[in-house]
Amino acid sequence: MNEPAELDLPVEGGTLRVLRFGRGPRTALAAHGITASGMAFGAMARRLPDEWTLFAPDLRGRGGSAGTPGDYGLDRHATDLCRLAEDLGAGRPVALTGHSMGAYIALRAAARRPELFDRLLLVDGGLPLPVPPGADLDAVLDVTLGPALARLGRTFATDQDYVDFFRAHPALGPDWNADIETYVRYDLTGPRGARRSKAREEAVRHDGRDLLASADLFAADLTRLSVPARLLHAPLGLLGQEPPMLRAAEVQHWTGRSPGLPAELIAGTNHYTILLGAAAKTVAERLVALIE
């Protein structure tokens, strides 16, 4: 697949920037992570068969949709996904995938509007996250997201400074490749001398608090899920080391309660490289094969 086309498609209250990879007749829709963009799916999209088209929106508050009005929150994003699925599917169900926070959004969309989707692939996300009662959710976000959140309040003198910031990330630097660099450069905005991420911190924090506080809702979504589904998860976490985002005990618990959700550990990956590294080929293959 060549460079993606950039589309502005209608949702409630505005438009979303949507990256279209490919021009095939079979349609897939992909939701990205909390500080990411639709460009996170570039490596995966390139490995889909020619008969597929993958549409990857920049969610509200990120990428080319940074200026799309809120409200934010996972329900809002799920509603946006459903609207895109209705319009892009043209009366036929579409394949759905999501990575990290996007997996939770995709799960919610598929649980609420199963008629819109013919399959659901969750990539290192989608399972309820254990949060201690009464925890300061912003403090939890600061600890778990680390460098990903810290960059949102910073400016960078040059584009290369921004790239170098990502190259120093322990989960990305050792596996740096052209797909990661394209993803990073797509996220840049701002004037010369004060370059910054397109992602809005208010959107990220709003969505992060919502994600952490919604374990019961995700549990309900999993137990009523009727769309054919699969979970792919990484052995290493957001900093390229243990613990993973989805711990083995949690994967075993939730796949046991949701027999229609088999899980597969993708060896040699962390939370980011499961999608941005060589494993993108596996992700693409699993999406295509999920109901074939």
Rank of each mutant, 00 (worst) to 15 (best):
Q252P: 03
L74H: 10
F55H: 11
G33I: 08
D118G: 13
G260A: 07
D159C: 07
L222F: 10
T155F: 05
Y162M: 13
L239N: 13
E201F: 01
L107Q: 02
D8N: 13
R154F: 06
K198Y: 03
R20W: 04
E285A: 15
R167H: 04
S258V: 13
F166S: 10
L149E: 09
W254M: 14
R200G: 02
E285I: 03
R92M: 09
A249S: 12
L152C: 10
L238T: 07
R196T: 03
G98V: 06
P133N: 06
D75Q: 11
E201C: 06
A45F: 08
R23V: 13
P132S: 09
S197E: 03
M101K: 12
L172C: 03
D80N: 01
L172P: 00
G38I: 05
F166R: 03
A289V: 10
G38S: 02
I266N: 09
E181L: 01
T182E: 14
E250W: 07
A279P: 01
L172H: 00
V143R: 14
P259A: 04
P133H: 08
D159T: 14
A220D: 14
A103P: 02
D71F: 10
T144K: 11
L238C: 01
A31I: 04
P10D: 04
A110P: 02
G260V: 06
R113F: 02
L88D: 03
R200A: 06
D118L: 08
A45Q: 07
T282N: 11
R112F: 07
G208P: 01
S226I: 08
T158P: 12
